[in-house]
Nucleic acid binder design. Structure first.
Lengths: 219, 219
DNA sequence: CATCTTTTGCGAGTTACTGTCACTTGATAG
DNA sequence: CTATCAAGTGACAGTAACTCGCAAAAGATG
């Protein structure tokens, strides 16, 4: 959500030299970069889990990932970003675009979010990360704070897609109010989920969130 | 919104010894505290305006306010809090409580917010602060980030009041989705206002925000 | 192999905090 | 008015998250 890229979880540690046809020629350099990024993130998640976020200096993460501290900062501009980096935004954007044009914005968002989330949850690794992230989001104020930037980035993307859909200008006040409401609702909902030990499926939470929104915010 | 207190702008620099009846006996100590707090905040706002937020170390603020750096941190736990501290939450809470019980949550919120905002804007000093804050919120990511904590504090208060009103438990998922949506909408709306040089009355922005919410988030 | 570019590590510096302790200053009882 | 107590303040030392510049290492390319 912060506009970084990360991939993988795919290749089983080492790619054989004779790359199969599908790979569009990816150099060793980029592969190493991805590997390093992943190593840092893994090390961080593990250490955060073991000894807590605040008690884990970046230096120690670097050590565990076997890179220098400066390298960590080269990959992640802030410590919080190690936690928050994901690449869901383009997924969601694509999913909304794929919805029929005559669908209402809220319905399109509902289906798009559900589909994206389902896709993400298929990968058990990704699912575990999601869970860990929710825990950190619950426990660490700094992470929570920084997550706001992520959210507003998502908001801009959402506004962009909806602008096309509705013919409104991207910076329309009403449009931004709309996206703000939707994302604010999600934020609180996932927070609630995290605070209650993640009981129940996140998918259900998404559904209930959109129920409230579509029902017109009547309590 | 962060749960701190601040007051004044009132007394014309020096309170005469024979305090008039109205004052409920306030010691010199507390008066000084308020004064110091105000001095720090004033100095900070001025310096931020002159040379920018990031370019103004806390030490310089302390210097300008004629206190030690440690004192600054005693009054404001973080640099961002110098900007974000306000005492609007209790105002809003009281305003909502004052609304008739049969009014819908959204209508109650509308009137409460409008009344509170009107009250705040009466004081020109307060109005200027609001404006400066909006500018910093627009320009400084760190401030924006920290404002999320404020918002979730406001959210908890809002949830508390609405729980009473609707008979729902305070931690009800639907209730939290509701408050999330409302505050998210406001956040984006005021952001929009700030990004567009604060043109138009903030009151109108509040109205339009609630229009969108009450209309049921149809775009 | 030689060269160019990207990535990495190192070291020094800045700044936002945190904690401790001694000192000052407003409140208060006699 | 003075002695005493509590609260607020400042100086100091320490930690950790960054930032910057530079030189060495490693992948890409002809």
């Amino acid at each position: 959500m912060t506009g970084m890229s990360a991939r993988t979880t795919a290749a089983p540690t080492t790619a054989p030299s004779g790359a199969p046809a599908g790979t569009p020629k990816i150099g060793l350099r980029e592969r190493k970069k991805i590997q390093t990024r992943q190593a840092i993130r893994r090390a961080a998640y593990r250490l955060f889990d073991e000894q807590g976020y605040d008690a884990t200096p970046v230096d120690r993460i670097a050590e565990a990932a076997d890179v220098s501290p400066s390298t960590v900062f080269r990959y992640f501009p802030t410590k919080e970003d190690i936690v928050l980096t994901d690449e869901y935004d383009p997924l969601i954007e694509a999913a909304i675009r794929a919805r029929p044009a005559d669908e209402s914005p809220l319905r399109a968002i509902r289906h798009a979010f559900l589909e994206s989330l389902r896709a993400i949850c298929e990968d058990p690794q990704e699912r575990a990360d999601l869970s860990a992230r929710a825990r950190l989001l619950r426990d660490v104020p700094a992470v929570r704070a920084r997550s706001m930037e992520s959210m507003s980035a998502t908001g801009r993307i959402l506004a962009g897609v909806l602008a096309e859909r509705t013919g409104r200008p991207v910076d329309d006040l009403e449009l931004r109010i709309f996206t703000g409401a939707v994302l604010g609702a999600f934020q609180e909902a996932t927070m609630h989920w995290g605070e209650h030990d993640q009981q129940g499926e996140l998918l259900d939470v998404v559904e209930r969130t959109l129920d409230v929104l579509e029902r017109g915010l009547t309590l």
